[in-house]
Design a protein around this nucleic acid. Structure first.
Lengths: 186, 186
DNA sequence: ATTATTTTTTGATTTATATCAAAGGATTGC
DNA sequence: GCAATCCTTTGATATAAATCAAAAAATAAT
């Protein structure tokens, strides 16, 4: 899906609005393995993924790499609390495949929010959509057995689960890669 | 905190705006144990809690009562995906103490959103705030031991953890009440 | 192609927490 | 004030998943 359709899906922007909004984004190419934001830095951009897969992750106190979320094409992505509250990011975000994205910085986005109430609404709907997804993951993680968590993964990310390293999925689901490997065998 | 200050905390509404917005809310009293929304019903109201504590919960496939979230005074509360997407609620929300709330229905809120871009912005900031909190819980639940999860609870809900039944906290944290009881002993 | 590196699988053992069961405490209602 | 609920604690046992270790498979580099 392209950015225009992604915007249109939630809000009926008119042609003029679309022109300005689309014009505020810049195209970027990112190669596999590259980071768009690192822990400790303040994230200044919101991204729309045209092609590719990304993950957010952090290294915990015991040195383990923990994947927090996957972002695939057609979705918006940022280090939320860093971008919106302009404070250091707790997460790294890394491309898992060569990717093409459209980005907008905080300043330009604020201008859009101030100029077009519809843009503000789009932002609100996007936040709510993400909130519901995170809640769903929480429910899956909180009370389900390892096998059911993997089933949740397949439902939530049907286009991703077979494309990214098993270890990343395991930590995303709150289990070790050995456990996930054993589950997959069945 | 009162509703006016809660609004003012995020957005500099002017006097006229505040008057209309505050006038759109209705005061309600709810007694301990009562439900403001039940599973399967569509939630039509957003609440501001002036006094009291609430919890959202559901009964899972094996019949267990699982607390999903706690809401205390000074916070906004609703069954998010039900209220915003107008579909049946997955959760019940119940008062754990006698409570006083201010409520606004979806229709009136939409009018406010359409009339005052600042209200829309308030809605966006509220959604983001909640999103960050849910993410924090997810990180606590996903990779921490039972003891650390209880410490997260104390940090996130310093005014609640000693006021609600231990069983509710246990399921909120993804553990059994026996485990939580043993942790508390220390 | 061959080596080097990364990722996944498999096995043996340990551990945190769930489950089952029952006894104590604390509240609520009459 | 006593009975009836409800909530919390304690103990014994079971279990899902973590940990540790190493082999096998897949991918990338020379």
């Amino acid at each position: 899906m392209n950015l225009k359709n992604a915007l249109f899906e939630k809000i009926n922007f008119n042609e003029d609005e679309l022109k300005v909004i689309l014009g505020s984004f810049e195209k970027e190419s990112i190669i596999k393995g590259e980071h768009i934001i690192k822990t400790g830095k303040t994230c200044d951009k919101l991204y729309y993924i045209k092609e590719g897969i990304f993950r957010s992750y952090y290294i915990n106190e015991s040195g383990k790499d923990i994947t927090q979320w996957f972002f695939n094409d057609g979705k918006f992505m940022t280090s939320i609390e860093s971008f919106y509250q302009q404070k250091p990011s707790l997460y790294n975000i890394q491309a898992l495949e060569d990717a093409v994205v459209y980005s907008i910085n905080r300043k330009k986005l604020d201008t859009l929010f101030n100029t077009y109430p519809k843009a503000e609404r789009f932002g609100r709907l996007l936040a709510i959509e993400m909130l519901i997804k995170v809640s769903n993951k929480l429910n899956a993680i909180q009370f389900q057995k390892a096998k059911e968590r993997y089933e949740y993964m397949i439902t939530e990310f049907p286009n991703i689960y077979y494309r990214v390293p098993l270890g990343y999925i395991a930590s995303y689901l709150g289990m070790t890669q050995e456990t996930l490997s054993r589950i997959r065998k069945k």
